[in-house]
């Protein structure tokens, strides 16, 4: 894993760690919302790329969030 991907993984996991502690069942949506609101598209693209490459090191909550983000808008 390259250093910049490693950094994105850490940042994404940090976000997931926070929302995982929040009540209710919207954690994945919250993580997805946060990524969408604050991450520049090329960061998201790199994250998606990493998920496609196996998503090493990413927390399950991030993986669920990415899945939501990549669903075509209904």
């Amino acid at each position: 894993m390259s250093a910049d991907v490693q950094k994105l993984v850490r940042m994404a996991n940090q976000i997931a760690t926070f929302f995982a502690t929040q009540p209710g069942d919207t954690q994945a949506a919250e993580v997805a919302g946060h990524l969408k609101a604050f991450w520049e598209p090329r960061m998201l693209t790199a994250l998606y790329g990493h998920v496609e490459a196996g998503g090493e090191g990413l927390s399950p909550l991030v993986l669920r969030a990415v899945e939501r983000l990549r669903q075509p808008a209904a």
Partner: peptide, 18 residues
């Protein structure tokens, strides 16, 4: 309509070459 890069992201992207 998409957010841009924050300072640390700009520096990361610079090192990456974009």
């Amino acid at each position: 309509r998409e957010p841009g890069l924050r300072i640390p992201n700009m520096l990361d992207a610079a090192v990456e070459g974009t």
